[in-house]
Nucleic acid binder design. Structure first.
Lengths: 210, 210
DNA sequence: ATTAAATAGTAACAAAAGTTACACATAGAA
DNA sequence: TTCTATGTGTAACTTTTGTTACTATTTAAT
């Protein structure tokens, strides 16, 4: 456990902080597809990602969803940082993109450690900032990119996050992530295939250039 | 100057911090339409808004723009907070929505004061968080709301920010903010008028219900 | 082996948004 | 006043995206 923490976070946190993290936090394993937190739910812990990847989604009242970004190893979720200022309801939904290992820290340590460890403060800011930029990227995609290109970007991003050009997913699930309909995704995937950019099969597809 | 600072920020910052702010910062007046910072430009100061309102825009490579949100009195711009972690290029463009009064603070004080004043740290976090939620709202609008409703929301927001149901703006300028074309905006405005929600005139319009 | 559920392909159509083109009105400048 | 630039209205058309409906295929369950 100590080893995993050091591997992913040893280069940013001093030993003493790693000790504290180890002491107050606990490690959990989550399986692909597990819902880690729902929109509106109380935030009690902040996650440090040790292995795997987490999908962060936004949801509207009707339950429509939109993929915001992925958390990868070494990332944390700045949404948790709302806690620092008293708010405690999650603005997002989080789902394990693949089997993942998380280290959960009770939120009260967020501000305690900020006073105590410079490296923690830097981490929190850096983390906040990364998420900020990812939201800006999401906005750019929605505002300036058409669905065809947005889909292709999405697939290439999947390849990076899952470290495999073979993506195991259904058209319907892609449609959920991009907040559109299955038929539209099928149509655009077919177009991407004709352009020679991907290869389609049942329940999976392969990205050919990236 | 002291008075203005105390009016807008006295209830959050302790006297000593207000003194420091007054000492190292300087007040500027900007006119409606002034560009305060361009995308990609170096960020050297962080702004505290004393009066007026600032429009924050995102821009893509082709120069297309999209309104993200407005800063109002008591707000600061969390984008400046990138500076805390070494980055210094602006991710956004800022334009004075109306004549405004700003207090500019050299960015190096950001982190100095975070160590020194608890109230400053709270302010920075609160500010960050507000901006975060405004980005999420922007995403919600883009992903889940059609242009007709997005336009109506935009107009109602303008009413709040400008404290007037009479909005002085051209269709073209609305189109820029929403990243669409003038013709589309004219069409949708006409529809809103027929619905009895607004009243159109040249160079201005009035929001009837809000 | 049969059935049912999930997945994918595609056509046909509808709605939303973007584009082009042009007429006309208004405000200022000359 | 006349001219010009700007702003607005609208029609006609295109493109993009969403919807409905139906087919075929594959997978899993009984």
């Amino acid at each position: 456990m100590r080893k995993e923490l050091t591997e992913s976070y040893g280069y940013i946190f001093e030993d003493e902080l790693i000790n504290e993290i180890e002491k107050v936090g606990h490690k959990i394993n989550v399986a692909e597809g597990d819902v880690l937190i729902e929109y509106g739910q109380d935030v009690t812990h902040m996650p440090l990602l040790l292995d795997g990847a987490i999908k962060i989604l936004r949801q509207d009242k009707e339950g429509d969803e939109l993929l915001l970004y992925f958390l990868e190893i070494g990332d944390s979720c700045s949404m948790t940082m709302n806690c620092c200022i008293g708010k405690s309801k999650s603005e997002i939904k989080a789902i394990a993109e693949k089997n993942s290992v998380l280290f959960l820290i009770p939120v009260e340590y967020m501000s305690i450690w900020m006073k105590k460890y410079k490296s923690w403060t830097s981490f929190v800011f850096e983390s906040y900032n990364n998420r900020f930029n990812e939201l800006l990227e999401a906005i750019d995609n929605l505002a300036f990119v058409n669905l065809h290109d947005r889909l292709y970007k999405y697939l290439k991003n999947k390849v990076v996050v899952n470290k495999s050009a073979l993506i195991e997913i259904t058209h319907q699930d892609i449609a959920y992530d991009l907040n559109t309909s299955r038929v539209v995704i099928s149509r655009l995937l077919k177009a991407l295939e004709k352009e020679g950019k991907i290869e389609l099969s049942r329940n999976k597809l392969e990205v050919l250039e990236f």
